[in-house]
Design a protein around this nucleic acid. Structure first.
Length: 166
DNA sequence: AGGACAACGGTCT
DNA sequence: AGACCGTTGTCCT
């Protein structure tokens, strides 16, 4: 996955998904954010926070096309995100969890070469900017319980169930 | 099965 | 420097 470096402008828009409406931020280089929200204002606040230094241009038509591609087809979507080196490592590790299976926070910590940084892995996963595409929902606690989810545990469960069927 | 708790490491203020 | 966290292992009841 690519690192988003200094750009002045990105596209964003709202679009329907099987899990409710999402807000998505994107460019030629790939998806920079995909978030769920209670209402559009909350989404905008969230995104302005993440991209405080970048101008966001609304383009819902493009956003809908992109989401169709993401959730209908199984084509791989390019990613272009911003994060610390540690976070990038963690997110890359998440992308290696196969569809339909799960991993634990401890396993991810192991994978990024910092077996004791479990707690930090948790926060890094929580900072994931791109729901679904970076499959942070596939990470559970070591004891098998759900752990947390930034956009609500209910959504985490829905995503896991949908993947089970594929 | 479930609660309390210390230790852990990255990130934010 | 201190606090916050999508955790974990251990030690309880």
């Amino acid at each position: 996955m690519k690192q988003l470096n200094s750009v002045s402008q990105l596209n964003f828009g709202f679009a329907p998904t099987p899990f409710g409406e999402c807000a998505i931020v994107f460019s030629e280089d790939g998806v920079s954010a995909l978030v769920f929200h209670e209402n559009r204002n909350a989404a905008i606040t969230d995104l302005k926070n993440r991209f405080y230094d970048i101008e966001l241009q609304e383009n819902n038509a493009k956003a809908e096309l992109l989401c169709k591609q993401i959730f209908d087809e199984k084509a791989k979507t390019k990613l272009c995100v911003r994060g610390t080196e540690f976070q990038m490592n963690v997110w890359n590790a998440l992308c290696e969890i196969p569809v339909g299976s799960t991993a634990t926070y401890a396993q991810i910590a192991q994978k990024v070469g910092k077996p004791k940084a479990v707690r930090a892995v948790g926060t890094a996963i929580g900072a994931n900017p791109v729901a679904w595409l970076i499959p942070c929902h596939r990470v559970l606690r070591t004891d098998g319980s759900l752990g947390g989810y930034r956009w609500g545990l209910e959504l985490k469960v829905k995503m896991l169930e949908r993947e089970k069927k594929i």
